[in-house]
Structures are given as C-alpha cells and as structure tokens.
Simulated assay, not measured.
Amino acid sequence: MKTLQILGKEIESFIKEYEEPFESKLLSEAVNVSSKITDILNQGNIDLLKNARTLIYYVINQKDQDLVAFAKQEGIAWAEHALTLELKLEWVQAIRRTLWHFVGILDEKKNITKDRVGIYTLEKNINDNIDKFLNNFFLNYTKFKDTMFLKQREMVEHLSVPIIPVSNNVSVLPLIGSVDSYRIQIIEEKVLNDIANTRIHTLVMDLSGIAMLERDVINNFEKILAGVKMMGCKAVLTGLRPDLVRKMVHSGIRFEEDAETKGTLQETLKQYL
C-alpha cells in the first residue's frame, strides 16, 4: 500500500492536470454557489475556486496546521462580509464530492489504492480533514459574529445612557427601558467617567422611564451611587415609581446616605438651575 503522502502527491498532480474539468465539475455540484462566485469575489475579495484548490492541497497532503489556519482565515472573512453558512456548507460539500469523483477516476486509471484497506485509509484521511476544516471554519465564523454582536450591543448600550449637561455643574441621566446586569455595568462606567471628565457637582438620575430593574442589579445600582459620592458629586434620584420603590425596600436597599430623592425631574431642575 502506498503511503498517504505519495497518494496525496498523485492526486494533487492529477487534479492539476485536469484543472478545467475539475472546476467545471465543482461548479456543477454547487449550483447555488456557482451563480454567486463573482458577487462573493466583489463583496469579500474571496476567490472561491482558488480557495477550493488551497483546501484540497491542505487536505490531501495532511497539512494540519495550515488547514486549521486557513479555516480560521475563511471563517473570519465570511463572517466579516456577512456571507451565509448555507453557501459555505454547499461549497465545501461540493468540493468533497468533486474531489472523490476525480480520485475515483484516478484510481480506475492507475489503481492507486491497490486494496480495500488503502481505500478506507484514504477515505478516512480526506473526510476527516475536510470535517476538521468545517469545524474550525464554523467555530471562527461564530466567534467573530459573537464578538461583533457584543461590540454592537455595547455601542447601543452606551448610546442608551445619555448624560446630558444642563449647566456647568449639573447633568441629567434619563434611564429608559430595562436594566440588566450587562447594562448596569455600562451605566457605572459611563457615569463615573463622565463625572471625572466634566467635574460636575450634581448628577440627576431620572428613573421614571425604567420599565424593569432586575433585583440582582439593584445592589449594583447602590454601588454606583456610592461611587458618584466618592467622586465628589451629588446624586439626585427622580421619578421613583411605587413598584420600583417596593422592590428596592424589599431588597434592603437604602439610598439616603448616597443620594437625594425628588418627585419629578421638572421640580428638581427648577431647584438646581
């Protein structure tokens, strides 16, 4: 039985010799992708046919490290340019079928595998490597997408914490919507940084627009108020609704030491402006 290295070189040479028929067969196997090859090239500078040849080279020559690195590169590129997993899966499976089609032709011509053991060994090697590529591709695609999602969410959350200066010494922070454990961290970061940058004396936090304040973040909110006080700034809370007050009281939270409370934002601004 020939070694996998020798078989790989024979398959590589055969595909190079029949490059045009190989590409024609590949395009016929990937009907949906073949019509989008130019669009994908223009959209993400991704040459599918060139990359198919690269993948096959790494697969049949057992270039494990290069294969994993290539899968990472491809996963990030497809995620960055919002190309769908459906197209990638169809393309790689078409590469698999086409590769085996030409391995079959080569075997008929030159009997490269010699025996059944050789066929099984070659099959396992090729399919395992293609699966390894797919697994690493999907892993890096998903990881990049998740990172982008978190960055976009952070940007949105920062925009949802607008600290509005109403005078040289007073700013207003109107909080709207639900406040979860992630958003409370954004609020803490932005509040303390803004106080440090602007050196305001009073921060009015209007809670009338809060739809929900999760119980486990109420304690974090108390810490924000303590931090505001430590920064030499006075915190004033307005718009406290009965349901929110009950939740705070039942949680054992008291704001008297770190913040002043007022009924409405309007009456507070009249006092401080």
Rank of each mutant, 00 (worst) to 15 (best):
E17W: 04
L67H: 03
N193Y: 09
V92R: 02
R96I: 08
A79H: 06
T3P: 01
N193S: 15
A71L: 06
V59H: 02
I184N: 03
L213Y: 04
I130N: 04
G209I: 07
L159W: 12
Q73E: 15
V191D: 06
P174R: 08
S160P: 05
M1P: 07
L192N: 03
E23W: 02
T261R: 07
T121H: 04
V172L: 09
R116M: 13
L213P: 02
S167D: 11
I187Q: 00
F137S: 02
G239C: 10
T202P: 00
I163W: 06
L85K: 01
R153N: 07
N111C: 02
Q62I: 11
L175W: 08
S167T: 15
I224C: 02
H81K: 10
G227Y: 10
E123S: 13
R116V: 14
L89V: 09
D146A: 13
G44R: 08
N32H: 12
V204K: 02
G252H: 12
T198A: 05
D128W: 05
A30I: 01
D194P: 00
G177P: 05
E123K: 13
E222S: 10
R246M: 13
K151Y: 07
K114W: 02
I112N: 01
K223E: 11
W100E: 01
N42E: 14
I195F: 06
Q185R: 11
M205H: 01
